[in-house]
Design a protein around this nucleic acid. Structure first.
Lengths: 338, 338
DNA sequence: CTGAAAGCGCTAACAA
DNA sequence: TTGTTAGCGCTTTCAG
């Protein structure tokens, strides 16, 4: 009662096994009569071609690896769901791999596993790949798309939002609403996103001749963001009246800390701006002003780039940077202060 | 430069291809000398056995399908991450499938895809399977574990929390803190979880001779939960002083609505209890009292049950129900009222 | 313990 | 358009 093979169908339909294969192969030539006979037998037996066997010969598994660090930040499940739905339309499915960024040895293992499954492509969501790992994938002919991260290695394709500009926009808006004691709880500055957003922040301040009250690396980690916030408010008279945070996930913690630990009001005492615009940011409890990552466009570009890389052996790497708008909500003043 | 095969390794090591296979096959007999020769050549060529080719002969793809409705409710990304990490230890990886519960035809397609990939097992997270779909999987010899859902069909294995008891506990606690006008925004009552939690609520009320102020199905959907909340507070003098909500995801929306639409205080005016204990519930902005789903134990049981089903052709279905504690937080009074 | 050979389910030449 | 045949990369008898 287990596997039904093309041969079973062929026998039942009284045709050759390759005829069965053809009716299930896109763009193969079969007469309508033949196709009907085969389809009928196939339906009766509930036959479906074995993708894995097919992959052996076509060299395509129709599996895309999604490598991701963790799913706690709502941005990633959201991306995962959207990527998966988009890839399904193209006949691919996502095999999930978790990679902690800390150990090169662990990273090696993840690449081992990727290769084991003969994935057709890799989407690395906010994880970096060392040069040697990228090389291994290239040798195995597995294309890589970096999603929401970029690296010095220009041969790697990536899709990001305009992080520098986003950081700048957020900061200039805070200045425009009258804030003068600005602080930044940055994303991990070892990553492109964290670094560029922080640079945008600094650039805007410099432009207006303002010195930052503090810049602390939150490393995209809530605990560290909480600690950073406490530090910012510990050197009193110079405590911030506005904080730009490296992503929404940390911004929630920053806001909670400002409100429930410091006993301050948002935005009356402190304005807060995040980055990403995850669904949670729009919920009334946080109502967070934030720089939107245009996730749908980013997904589109990622898929397009990846498909290109898969289908075209000599495709050039794609480098896409998409600008996102500043979404104004209740965590900042909506008008100038003075 | 693409695929390195066992034959390449064999030639390089000056041994037979089957020797290579053996050194990479758990429990095959190879001499240490042979193994070393092979491993050396394999390392130099960066060879890894092709799981897909192996699957053809072993009948095992080392792929587990996770079928899930959506990832917006934090409970699911959390479960996905934990399942994935646990399965990795056993040498399996997760291929993700999204299934909207609405159309039987869509569901058929998902099962088609599952079969295409020759998955070794299915974890259906909070999605139901019609009898015919379950049958198709059984015919293909693909075991199924229902995660956080159960069905009338006793031949299906499942792992759930003690939903009836959880609903009862939550409700009795609300009564103990002095609430008398209790309402329930239920989970979708067409699902086992939604129905059983609602029944626990009703049972507790009856036990204390209290009539519910209202019971409205929120269908595990935030928009509907918001609407339900508004309805509950529209028939004034009889508005609730406590709401038990079918899961945390909806409870956040209920709380937001109570606070920001109704202008009421939680817990002073209205107590709220959720279900799940997702990470977000512990964040200060919500600080939600909730019935914990013991997710780690549920995951453990799911994996154990699934592995059993996979490895043992005639394994009996597992039915596991795990009790979870009520986690007291700030959305309810911590002491009796009077 | 090792190598030769068969075959998993499929696609892709190649003839007919 | 169809059937025949030869593998894809691997595991697993079967001899030795």
């Amino acid at each position: 009662m287990s596997k039904v093979t093309s041969l079973d169908v062929a026998r039942k339909a009284g045709v050759s096994q390759s005829a069965v294969s053809r009716t299930f192969t896109e763009g193969a030539s079969v007469s309508p009569v033949m196709a009907n006979k085969v389809l009928k037998a196939a339906n009766e037996l509930d036959y479906r071609p074995n993708i894995l066997a097919r992959s052996l010969i076509t060299g395509r598994s129709r599996i895309i690896a999604l490598v991701v660090g963790y799913l706690e930040n709502q941005f990633y499940p959201d991306a995962l769901e959207k990527l998966s739905r988009a890839l399904k339309e193209k006949g691919y499915h996502i095999l999930v791999f978790f990679a902690s960024n800390d150990s090169e040895k662990e990273a090696q293992k993840v690449v081992d596993e990727l290769i084991d499954y003969q994935v057709d492509g890799i989407i690395a969501a906010s994880v970096s790949l060392s040069h040697s790992l990228a090389d291994r994938c290239k040798k195995q002919n597995i294309p890589i798309m970096l999603f929401n991260r970029r690296q010095a290695n220009r041969s790697l394709s990536y899709v990001t939002s305009a992080n520098f500009k986003g950081g700048q926009k957020a900061t200039e808006y805070l200045i425009a609403t009258g804030c003068r004691r600005l602080a930044h709880v940055s994303g991990w500055v070892e990553t492109s996103t964290g670094k560029e957003r922080a640079e945008g922040f600094k650039y805007a301040l410099k432009k207006f001749g303002i010195n930052p009250v503090g810049i602390i690396d939150g490393m995209y980690n809530q605990k560290m963001a909480i600690k950073a916030t406490k530090t910012l408010f510990s050197k009193m008279p110079n405590s911030p009246d506005a904080i730009f945070v490296g992503n929404d996930h940390m911004a929630f913690s920053v806001m909670d800390t400002v409100r429930y630990e410091m006993g301050l009001k948002v935005p009356e005492d402190v304005s807060i701006v995040g980055y990403d615009d995850v669904p949670l940011s729009a919920w009334p409890a946080y109502n967070l002003t934030t720089v939107r990552q245009p996730i749908n466009k980013m997904i589109q570009a990622t898929i397009r780039g990846l498909m290109n890389l898969i289908e075209n052996d000599y495709a050039k790497p794609t480098h896409v940077k998409i600008e996102g708008e500043l979404v104004l909500r209740g965590s900042t003043e909506n008008r100038l202060r003075q």
